[in-house]
Simulated scan of single mutants.
Amino acid sequence: DSWQRCEALKLVFAWALLQVSRPGLSSHLPRLLPLSLLLNDHYKPENCMLGVRCLHHIVQNTPAADLRQFNRAEVLYQAVFKHLHTSEAAVIQLALACLLDLLLVFEKPPSLLGPSQSRRKPCRHDDVLRMVLTNMEVEHKVDLRRIYASALLLYIERMGVAVCRHLQRLERVVLGYLEVSDPPEEISRLKMLEVLQKMTREAWPRMERRVDVLLRCLLRLMVDVSSDSRLSDSVRQQLMDQSSASIHLLDTCSYGRVQHLLLQVDSGCCSPQLLRYLATATTG
């Protein structure tokens, strides 16, 4: 408990730990892990953040075999995963980044599994993604929504085609985040448009049945963006470009069905700029 009586001790410990890299870190794990876990479990957010940083550094600079020895990896996983139940944005951001690297200690990324291997067998990647989606569905704080939206793209890339297991919830999250404005940078919306594009590429055969709902949401987004005076020209351009790219992908995976649906759009409700985007969205 001496580090709690002298705040400088934890900073000295963290600094010293972060100076040690692979391969020298592995032999010191018995002395470095306990205090890192104590910091990680502390009730003060600043100590939690310091602890997660230390644990993440250990994960990045220790061979996977050494982490799996004595069940260390499982202890680390449980210690970091529990932070997903908190509401501290900075802690969650660090925890999501740490988990992304820690999962590789347990298993290969689902996106890299060969055809002969079972892609449909649930794994820890599914557990983390499921927890992230659960939090995203009920989250209303702007800073947390931005953090989750940024992290979601990385986890979908890691999942690959196995993301099909989560398509229904992913669709709800994407629709919910695209409907809510996030001015002035619109970080959440831009990230979710990237998520939608990645989801469409990975789950190509499953996306055709979702075209109607997603296209309706994208059109509403483009109408809102084209008339929102709070947005800068650069942000508006990014949103329109990303929305057009998403529509183009949906049109491709539905074999041109989006083109027929766009013919039903009332041109009287759209600005000339929006009509130009819609005219080019399905032609690439």
Rank of each mutant, 00 (worst) to 15 (best):
1 D>L: 08
1 D>C: 06
10 K>T: 05
13 F>C: 09
15 W>T: 13
19 Q>I: 10
22 R>Y: 15
22 R>L: 13
25 L>I: 00
28 H>K: 12
33 L>T: 13
33 L>F: 15
33 L>C: 14
38 L>A: 14
42 H>S: 14
43 Y>C: 14
43 Y>Q: 15
48 C>S: 12
51 G>P: 05
51 G>Y: 05
54 C>N: 08
55 L>Q: 11
57 H>I: 06
58 I>A: 02
58 I>Y: 07
65 A>P: 00
68 R>L: 15
75 V>F: 08
76 L>T: 06
76 L>D: 10
79 A>R: 12
80 V>A: 00
84 L>D: 13
89 A>W: 00
92 I>N: 01
94 L>N: 07
96 L>A: 02
100 L>S: 10
101 D>W: 14
102 L>W: 02
104 L>D: 12
104 L>W: 05
105 V>I: 13
111 S>D: 05
111 S>L: 02
111 S>C: 09
112 L>K: 15
118 S>A: 14
119 R>D: 00
122 P>R: 03
127 D>M: 12
127 D>S: 11
129 L>R: 03
130 R>N: 13
131 M>P: 07
132 V>W: 02
137 E>K: 11
139 E>I: 04
141 K>M: 09
146 R>L: 08
148 Y>I: 04
149 A>K: 00
151 A>P: 02
152 L>M: 13
156 I>L: 15
167 L>Y: 01
168 Q>K: 08
169 R>Q: 15
175 L>W: 01
176 G>W: 07
176 G>S: 04
177 Y>T: 04
177 Y>I: 03
178 L>F: 03
180 V>D: 08
182 D>S: 09
185 E>H: 14
186 E>I: 08
189 R>K: 15
191 K>G: 05
195 V>N: 00
195 V>Q: 01
207 M>L: 13
209 R>I: 08
209 R>C: 09
210 R>N: 12
212 D>S: 10
214 L>R: 04
221 L>F: 04
222 M>N: 00
225 V>A: 05
229 S>D: 04
229 S>H: 05
230 R>S: 14
232 S>P: 05
234 S>G: 04
234 S>N: 09
236 R>W: 09
237 Q>I: 03
240 M>L: 15
241 D>N: 10
244 S>W: 05
245 A>K: 14
246 S>P: 08
247 I>D: 01
248 H>A: 13
249 L>K: 05
253 C>R: 10
255 Y>E: 07
257 R>A: 12
258 V>C: 04
262 L>F: 08
262 L>M: 06
265 V>E: 04
271 S>N: 07
272 P>C: 11
274 L>E: 06
274 L>I: 03
281 A>E: 02
284 G>C: 04
